[in-house]
Simulated scan of single mutants.
Amino acid sequence: MPRTRAATPSTRKILPLAKVYALLEPGPVVLLTTADQPHANIMTLSWQTMLEFEPPQIACVVSNGNHSFQQLQASGECVINIPTADLAEQVVGCGNCSGAKVDKFARFGLTAIPAAQVAAPLIKECYANLECRVIDTRLVSDYCLFILQVVNAWIDPSVQQPQTLHHCGNGEFMLAGERIKLKSKMK
């Protein structure tokens, strides 16, 4: 049965479908590191979401046009590095060039440190680092969607209230804001 078009409220404006992602931005912008020995790469990523809590599982979209796609597919490992606002320029810079042509660690003054369980490095300057292994590739060919399991996690205890970056599109970002605490049955 065909749908009838509802009247558009006069206080609403049509949003182009290409901008919907900015409304549903799934989490902080992260720096995904991969390794193709001896070369490590950094990719700016903002399309990831939690799937499971224990063990932690994450879904992320890595475009097959990115250098990191081939490295992630070949190695089956990566590190999700979570930067704070003080790294905004490096985050954008890493997203605006290809690791196939540029050593992003050198260009953006970031420090690679060895991970404990995967070959991809941690980024020292990031607030948190999640060592991951690919556990499911069934949606990679259709959607470039990798399912990862976190196998080790690190956090910088000196960062008390991290301001993470959230992508809004067209070079605009929000910073994670004020925290509030409400009653919850979740631990």
Rank of each mutant, 00 (worst) to 15 (best):
A115D: 02
N129H: 15
C132H: 00
R107L: 08
A115W: 00
R107S: 09
V150P: 04
F146V: 06
C126A: 14
S141G: 14
Q149D: 05
R133S: 05
N129V: 04
I123E: 02
D136Y: 03
A106I: 10
K104F: 00
I155H: 10
R138C: 10
R133M: 06
E125R: 03
T111G: 10
V134G: 03
P121M: 03
A106C: 11
P114S: 13
F108P: 02
I135D: 00
L145M: 12
G109W: 05
G109C: 09
A153G: 09
A120T: 03
K124S: 15
F105V: 06
A153L: 07
C126V: 05
A116E: 14
I155L: 11
V134T: 11
S141L: 13
L148D: 00
L148R: 02
N129I: 02
P114M: 08
A115S: 15
F105C: 06
Y143A: 14
R107M: 08
L130Y: 03
A115E: 01
C126L: 07
C144K: 08
R138M: 08
A120I: 02
T137V: 12
Q149Y: 04
A106N: 11
C144P: 03
L145V: 10
A115N: 04
R107K: 12
C144A: 13
W154Y: 13
A120Y: 01
A120Q: 03
A120E: 02
D142Q: 12
A116Q: 15
R107Q: 13
N152F: 10
R107A: 09
D136Q: 09
I135P: 01
Y143V: 11
L110F: 04
P121V: 02
P114R: 09
V134I: 11
T137E: 09
I147W: 04
V151A: 06
C132W: 00
Q117D: 13
P121W: 01
A120M: 04
A119N: 13
S141T: 15
L130V: 05
C132D: 00
W154A: 10
C144L: 07
D136K: 06
A119K: 14
S141N: 15
I113N: 10
A128N: 14
A153D: 09
A106D: 14
A106E: 14
A112G: 12
I113K: 13
F105H: 07
C144Y: 06
E125W: 01
L122D: 01
I155E: 08
L122Y: 02
A106V: 13
S141W: 11
T137P: 04
A128E: 14
A112N: 10
Y127E: 06
R138I: 10
Y143C: 14
Y127S: 07
V118L: 10
R107D: 06
Q149P: 05
